[in-house]
Amino acid sequence: MATDEKPPRTARTRLAVAGARSSTESVFGARGRGDRLGNRFFLAFLLLGMAMAITGLAAMIIWAIIEGSPRLSMDLITNGPSTLAPETAGYRPAILGSIYVIGGVIALIVPLGVGAAVYLEEFADKTRWWNRLIELNIQNLAGVPSIVFGILGLAFIVRSPLSLGAVPAAGAVTIALLVLPTVIIAAREAIRAVPPSIREGSLALGATQWQTIYRQVLPAAMSGILTGVILAVARAIGEAAPLLLVGAVTFVTSDPSFFGPGFTTLPTQIFDWARRPQEEFQVLAAAGVLIMLALVLVMNSFAVWLRNRFEQKW
């Protein structure tokens, strides 16, 4: 059953109370210039933080548009890469490779992540040491650098025991392992946020624990779970390093297949173009960034739309 974890909530509550109190006091009190200056400074600080985040994003998008605009055409999507004719070269195999890898990642992380979260929240007896060990491990895994997962993928997935070879499937498994902790943590958070009274109400009607989880808890937690999946997928799309290790080659001209060797993905392809000195390849790389942004945007909009359909309010 869901236990309420007090610390984050109380900290947040305290922050909210402090914020509410200080704003009330600033309205009512002639509490001296010091306070008012402090408030101004704090507000300025918040605005600065927000401005930096937005400027960074805007600068990148504007740069990519200016730099990549000469190459924005259907060629970019339909053509394969070419070093001989960079002015018509495109990202077709890379886009397909990315879609294969991301598709595989989603197919793996949703059932595994939700399954693990359901086990930890609804079934695991927290007084048992092995369950606490699993929890601790998941927390720590979320902080392991991605290159380590690349090595793991190379050693265990590309080579024996899984022996998949350097194929998109191996990349998908590797990236899935990398982002799984994020999904598990987010899904646990979402499941824990479902009020225990919902579970009690369902069980009191004679529903089994499984029916309660499947038909009450998971639908109610769906929007939170999807948020976790969105974050994980956004990270997975951009990963290049572990994919390079598990065999995403930087230059592939033919369409990939899920279990066939020789694939590339958008970030690895962009990396390949960007490190070439010639001007044409720089332009191509910038255009690739735009494709990647568009892909992320499309996938996220779909996920957000899906999440809003499941949005719950208590």
Partner: peptide, 22 residues
Amino acid sequence: FQKPNPFPKSIYDNVAFGPRTT
């Protein structure tokens, strides 16, 4: 229960949940 605890679903589905599951 003491505190009303309807499911976050439609009125119809709230009532139909029990008969469906059982």
